[in-house]
């Protein structure tokens, strides 16, 4: 197996995730797309681990999974809060940062 098989797959998933983050309006969908990006990173880490015969990548992947769980928890809590205040989770209606 080529290491590039995994890396290319990671790249494809990453770009799909990026597209999702950019194109989706629903906040929950954006969070899902972020999960795609994080998973692509994990694939890369583990592929490199296998290539180099080390274990550190496994540890990093575990850390990423844990942080992703935390991120989803806080992210969804925020989405709930926004929903409660505005009755909508459409991100393009949130434009308080407009200059």
């Amino acid at each position: 197996m080529l290491v590039n098989q995994f890396l290319m797959l990671g790249a494809v998933l990453f770009c799909i995730g990026v597209y999702g983050v950019l194109a989706r309006k629903n906040a929950v969908m954006v969070l899902m797309s972020i999960e795609l990006i994080l998973n692509s990173v994990n694939i890369n880490l583990l592929a490199f681990d296998r290539l180099n015969g080390s274990i550190d990548g496994n540890v990093f992947a575990l850390f990423i999974i844990a942080v992703a769980a935390a991120e989803v928890g806080v992210g969804l809590a925020m989405v709930l809060l926004i929903y409660r205040n505005r009755k909508s989770i459409a991100l393009d209606e949130l434009s308080e940062m407009k200059g």
Binding site: K25, L91, D92
Partner: peptide, 9 residues
């Protein structure tokens, strides 16, 4: 500066 996250992204 639309304030739209997607555009910033």
């Amino acid at each position: 500066q639309s304030g739209k996250v997607s555009l910033y992204g």
